[in-house]
Write a protein that binds this DNA or RNA. Structure first.
Lengths: 202, 202
DNA sequence: CGAATTATGTTGTTAAAACAACAAAGGATC
DNA sequence: GATCCTTTGTTGTTTTAACAACATAATTCG
């Protein structure tokens, strides 16, 4: 997904990694707001102006970091290349819960401005994952079924919602139980659609 | 000592550090001989030809590494800026023993070719340290005393020899005891010279 | 031994990072 | 509100690293 085929100059890769890891380190030490570009570039041992060759600003960097860490976390727990199945959906839900929970603990929740950024990135990445899963299931009766776009959108928001719930309740609940409950609800919706008649529970 | 006043381009510092740490990592994993320039530069995420902009070859890099790690180790245990005293000399002896012992354990002793390189670097650095200590003690009766150069040379080789002895005997002996014995021998020699009449034992 | 592969150094060109200097926006302080 | 100071973005120039290509040791292997 977004796997750039062209070989990038090693210096670019190195510089980006330095920026990313410096920023992640700083995020564990202080608030997002109080971090300056200079702080980041100092720690990365690069020039301040070089930062702007890679990212528009701090916010774009944060976008990128969330997208990247989210996809890394998901890829380590879910086979994105696999086909759609209730089991894969379950894994995805649990992975999202885990990610958002970790995010809640790892970084100060003081920055209210960050929540919408995280929301946008996580939901849009979920949409892409789900759309790639669902698209192949499209039947010939397109007019009878909800479109893959609509299904992916709805599912992505549902899963984001579940993840948010989990991350807020924290240790009080079992992630797996929540995932199973959510699957029950979702399966009712999904199986009413002809596209999903072949998708069975394990 | 060799403290270059001019500000170096951060890229140069970063590249050198990357080369140095990659090389040190590789030295812990395999023999010096089997390490290629490509191995080093791959791990350092730099281009192979960039290596040659910083070091002539693998051997020059090793020279530099020994010099650097030696001075780092010494500086952490001896105040080089201080003046000459038996106590400082004792600290220096112990520090050299520690360094050479660690070198013996850390890296494979299979590379016989490395010993002379280490010898050269350690002795020459010791010479510089000792010369800077001894020089201020020179009296006006230069013709009566052994020159600072001769004294520094003799002492540096003596201390290197002590360090070698310690590193070979390993845990069998107490570094401090050896240092004290050596100091007894050295003080006999040193105190016969008018330059050292003011240098007392603690 | 001889061929094939691999490692070493070198060179000229291209792309990226460093640097310095600037204008402008944002915050703090009086 | 005026002032000072910090941070932000931008730009043009210089320096360094990447790259590709080459010739030449040095190794490996049949």
């Amino acid at each position: 997904m977004a796997d750039n085929g062209k070989k990038l100059d090693p210096r670019i890769l190195r510089t980006r990694k330095l920026i990313e890891s410096s920023f992640l380190e700083l995020l564990e030490e202080e608030d997002f707001q109080s971090i300056t570009i200079q702080d980041i570039t100092d720690r990365a041992t690069i020039n301040r102006s070089t930062f702007y060759a890679h990212f528009d600003d701090k916010y774009m960097l944060f976008d990128h970091i969330i997208r990247q860490t989210f996809m890394q976390s998901i890829k380590s727990k879910v086979l994105l290349s696999a086909e759609f199945s209730m089991n894969n959906l379950r894994s995805l839900i649990i992975a999202v819960c885990d990610y958002l929970t970790r995010l809640n603990w790892q970084y100060r929740p003081t920055d209210l401005q960050l929540k919408p950024v995280i929301e946008t990135q996580v939901q849009s990445q979920l949409y892409k994952i789900l759309f790639n899963w669902i698209k192949p299931l499209e039947t010939d009766f397109e007019n009878l079924n909800p479109s893959s776009e609509l299904t992916a959108s709805m599912l992505s928001w549902s899963i984001y919602g579940i993840g948010l719930q989990c991350s807020q309740l924290g240790e009080l609940i079992s992630v797996e139980e929540v995932a199973d409950q959510a699957l029950d609800l979702l399966s009712g919706t999904l199986f009413s659609s002809p596209s999903f008649e072949s998708v069975e529970m394990a």
